[in-house]
C-alpha cells in the first residue's frame, strides 16, 4: 500500500476558534492508482492534499507513506520525503520566473543532491517526456499556460516520485489545453504512475479511475470502498 491513512484529523486554530478541517479520514491508495479527490470548498480536500503531500502534519491519526510513518516526522525529514516521494503540480504552475524550463525542472534534483551531469540528463529526459524538448532554454514568461504546466509536470516527475499530486492542474487553462494536460496524466497513469488529482470540476475528476468525495472533513463516498463492499 502506498498511502495508508488511519483516523486522520486536522484541527486549525483561527484566532480563538477551532476549525475541524478533517474529522477521521481512513484512506488507502495502492501503487498505480489514479485517484480524484473532489468536494465542495470547505470540505477539507485541500487540507487532505497538504497532508498527503507532507506539507503539513495531522493533529491526530497515522499516515504511512510507502510503509514509513510520516505523521510525526521532523521538518527536515518531511522536506526529504517531499523531495523524493511527492511530485507537486499546482493550479498556478508555480514555476520560478527567472529560471529556464530546464533549470526549473532541475531544482528538485539540486535539493536531492544530484550531480550536474545526472541532473541535466534527467531534467532533459523529463522535459522530453512532456513534449517540451524544444523549450528547455525558455523562461516561463516566454511560454504558454499549457507549456508552463507541462514544465511543472516534468518538474514533478523528474525525481521519479511515488505520487504525482496535482491540485486543480487545469484550473488556469482553457478547456483544450486542460484536456491535453489530462491526456498527459492518462499516459503517465498508463505507464504505472500513481496520481492523486484534487479538483472541484466533475468533468476533470471523470478522467480518474477512482473518485473520492469529501464533505465536512469526512469521506462521503469512495468508489474503491464501494467496490470492496460490493465484492
Amino acid at each position: 500500500m502506498l498511502i495508508e491513512m488511519r483516523g486522520i484529523e486536522k484541527v486549525y486554530k483561527l484566532g480563538s476558534e477551532r476549525v475541524n478541517a478533517l474529522r477521521g479520514i481512513d484512506l488507502d491508495v495502492s501503487e498505480g492508482e489514479y485517484v480524484a479527490l473532489t468536494g465542495p470548498s470547505g470540505s477539507g480536500k485541500s487540507t487532505l492534499m497538504h497532508l498527503i503531500g507532507c506539507l503539513d502534519s495531522p493533529t491526530a491519526g497515522r499516515y504511512l507513506l510507502a510503509g514509513s510513518d510520516v505523521s510525526s516526522m521532523s521538518d527536515a525529514a518531511l522536506a526529504r520525503v517531499r523531495n523524493r516521494q511527492i511530485g507537486f503540480v499546482f493550479q498556478t504552475f508555480n514555476l520560478l520566473p527567472r529560471a529556464t524550463a530546464l533549470h526549473n525542472v532541475e531544482i528538485p534534483l539540486i535539493y536531492g543532491g544530484f550531480g550536474t551531469r545526472e541532473r541535466r540528463r534527467r531534467a532533459t529526459a523529463a522535459l522530453e517526456r512532456v513534449g517540451l524538448a524544444d523549450r528547455m532554454k525558455h523562461q516561463p514568461n516566454q511560454m504558454s499556460g499549457g507549456q508552463r504546466q507541462r514544465v511543472a509536470v516534468a518538474r514533478a516527475l523528474v525525481t521519479d516520485p511515488s505520487i504525482l499530486l496535482a491540485d486543480e492542474p487545469t484550473g488556469n487553462l482553457d478547456t483544450a489545453t486542460g484536456n491535453s494536460i489530462l491526456e498527459l496524466f492518462a499516459q503517465l497513469h498508463a505507464s504505472g504512475q500513481t496520481i492523486v488529482l484534487v479538483t472541484h470540476e466533475a468533468d476533470v475528476a471523470a478522467h480518474a479511475r477512482r473518485h473520492i468525495v469529501l464533505r465536512d472533513g469526512k469521506i462521503e463516498s469512495d468508489d474503491a470502498n464501494k467496490k470492496e463492499s460490493a465484492g
Partner: peptide
C-alpha cells in the same frame, strides 16, 4: 513556498 514544496530544507 515552491522551493519548500520541492524539498528544500529550512537550513
Amino acid at each position: 513556498g515552491i522551493r519548500k514544496a520541492l524539498g528544500a530544507r529550512r537550513s
